[in-house]
Design a protein around this nucleic acid. Sequence first.
DNA 1: GCGCAATGGTTGAAGCGTCAAGTGTTCCGG
DNA 2: CCGGAACACTTGACGCTTCAACCATTGCGC
Lengths: 165, 165
Amino acid sequence: MTRWLTEDELQAWVRLVAVVELLPGSLEQQLRRDSGLSHFEYYVMAMLSEAPERRLRMTALAARSNATLSRLSHVVSRLEDRGLVERAPCPADGRATNAVLTEAGWRAVEAAAPGHVEQVRRTVLDALEPQQVDQLRAIAGAILDRLDPDGVMTAPYSRPQGQRA
Amino acid sequence: MTRWLTEDELQAWVRLVAVVELLPGSLEQQLRRDSGLSHFEYYVMAMLSEAPERRLRMTALAARSNATLSRLSHVVSRLEDRGLVERAPCPADGRATNAVLTEAGWRAVEAAAPGHVEQVRRTVLDALEPQQVDQLRAIAGAILDRLDPDGVMTAPYSRPQGQRA
DNA sequence: GCGCAATGGTTGAAGCGTCAAGTGTTCCGG
DNA sequence: CCGGAACACTTGACGCTTCAACCATTGCGC
């Protein structure tokens, strides 16, 4: 009783899978080469850089970056060793930990951002017509309603503000 | 001199990143739960199941699955341990190895396919209007021209044939 | 207040991917 | 043909993610 895919659906699907498979590697490669950061490390630090006080609780940071607390904890430990992030106990809740971007961390993000945005333009946005960008916004939005109904991952961007990618 | 992203571009980009980040996990989870296979294992075996004789040379298989030869070699070793795939030296070229799907491997793919297709429908295709599926096909195609100019990853599907995802 | 589940986070071992180095073929110039 | 370069992998060590177990703190029922 499986509803198999039509030819059109199959092609759309195969291409989407290929994009999903290839895009992370492309971003990863550029960032690692030019900034010595993994995409995940960059993303975590970018989230911190946009947060008030450049600090966020581990749980919030994990949600925004779609990571388990464990993964985040390990990564923050490594970033801490490199002096890019610091941990600070949360005064309001003794169980919680805040991750704080250091000055060096801020500079690292600032330095990495332009190259990253360039890469995004090169591989995605500049490949599309303006109307396709709109279509992509709608399509990705529709898919996200299924994948992430609460919009946890896009939360920081859901209310229009001037922010970098 | 960085061309920063416009509001529209930023939103499209943020959502695409979220999809790219979330979709693999969603597929992974369903497959692992229902079939005990990782998405990559499933994908490799699906490629084999569609190949003539259900066999492919390691290099070709690696290209189709966007993996390094090393990664593929490790994965094939594990699948071999589980009796789902076998290695056979290639008679035509002494350097080459063929990966062959076993009967058990074929049954595993057959068993996993319906659930996987269901998941694809649930999370992506059924979330979109028919015209959006067409748009997605064009958009993903345009991005792939940048990411994978030679169309290595979509090669098996470039010529229309009746095949499952 | 007291006990106990829930919350927030860390840790260590195991598994998978990557990278560098290695083995054995095949191709090819001379 | 003979030697070296290119090719098709394989292997082992290292790094990152996951998973399960763990500890400390907080909230809550009573």
